[in-house]
Design a protein around this nucleic acid. Structure first.
Lengths: 223, 223
DNA sequence: ATTGAATGAATGTCAGACAATCGGCTTGAC
DNA sequence: GTCAAGCCGATTGTCTGACATTCATTCAAT
């Protein structure tokens, strides 16, 4: 247990940095859904060789952040509404469970961190910085998932959220969505702080259903 | 909807075949947990070049089937009991949900497939072929997950099961485990066939808890 | 207008090389 | 004799450059 302390500093290779850079680019919507990622262009832009780039692309493909079709190369997935719904449903399953567990085991000091993260989101919600909104919301959930007592749930949840980050940024910029999002997150926080598992699960489920609805709205509006 | 028909035959590249080969080798326990995979050796064994091999390794690393430590290279993860427990717990969450959904929506013809898969497992359980046991059990669950109405759940579940395939093969070869496993799976099948969601979930949960216990036993016995 | 072939672009794969880093070994000092 | 420092082999990280293969598009012919 105490060996979880990650004292060893893992050296970051160029490889990993490349993956991170690309991931970030995908998150921030630099590439349009469905657009192709031409290897020769990317190597130049990233300043690395093709073999290294291809390794990075394989990692991203395994995370489902890009598609790789044989002989056609990598491209940004164009998610259908069915797929997005499926991801939200899976996320609901994991997140509700994590929130419930977290409410029963989160230590006091982490609870304070959670409160801080909630405040940070409140601030971002008032601003117009939609990237800050997504980031601070992610921090909030990151604390919950880190305290659910199961690192696998955390890992899977991170992967799911990553796959729909593009849509989340869009729906989070909807008029009023950030504000109601804050209200929902506050409910979750308070249920956790009260160690009320049932209320926490309920609030969590409600939050995700609303987020899914907002995502659907943002989709209807833009397409 | 009707565009789901997968008429297009995706060409299989050497790349994918390499990944599949390695995956299979890992599943069947060719490499001991914790052992290192030396790139130069693997390329010779697989008959491919190092760049291609490294791409394949990146894919496997993203699936968490191998670890890659910078400057030390790839190795087979040596899972701790805590990690295995966490994976089983996550699997329980997903599998119980999938079984419950499946019971409400599986079409008649798939139900027959499920019955066939159960029979196949019964036969394997009587034999001494522990690989056949794992394979047929996987087929059984594959049908359930494919009919739960959410491909994401299926995908995540597959990934989780893959990570503990080594341990499943070991626990499945425990004295009497396959037989009781069959009894549990039969319960699940019958609840699904009766479209009784509650019973299906209950049977599924019971099955996984027993599987986890068996895995723990097999660990105690061998270490 | 439809079919067919040719062309160009992009990917899949390889060989070989070199620097950087790690782990273990030897050596030397106390 | 033990411990620490330094060296060396092994392995990985990365690059350059090349070539075959495949796909999509264009253009010509029927």
């Amino acid at each position: 247990m105490s060996s979880d302390l990650n004292l060893r500093i893992l050296p970051r290779t160029v490889q990993q940095e490349t993956v991170d850079k690309l991931r970030l680019a995908i998150f921030s919507g630099v590439f349009a859904p469905g657009s192709r990622l031409v290897e020769s262009q990317l190597c130049v832009q990233l300043g690395i060789s093709r073999p290294s780039l291809r390794e990075a692309l394989r990692s991203l493909a395994a995370e489902r952040l890009i598609d790789i079709v044989p002989n056609r190369g990598p491209s940004i997935p164009a998610l259908t509404w069915e797929q997005i719904t499926a991801i939200y449903e899976a996320r609901e399953l994991l997140e509700v469970e994590a929130v419930g567990r977290c409410s029963q085991r989160i230590p006091e000091e982490q609870l304070q961190e959670l409160a801080r993260a909630l405040s940070a989101f409140a601030e971002a919600a008032s601003s117009n910085d939609s990237l800050a909104r997504v980031t601070t919301a992610a921090d909030f959930y990151s604390i919950i998932l880190a305290n659910c007592g199961n690192p696998i749930l955390e890992e899977i949840h991170r992967g799911l959220v990553a796959r729909i980050s593009f849509f989340r940024a869009r729906s989070m910029s909807l008029e009023g969505r950030a504000q109601s999002s804050y209200a929902e997150m506050k409910e979750i926080y308070e249920a956790i702080a009260a160690h009320d598992e049932k209320a926490a699960r309920k609030a969590s489920r409600r939050h995700i259903l609303k987020a899914m609805t907002a995502a659907k709205d943002s989709m209807d509006h833009t397409s």
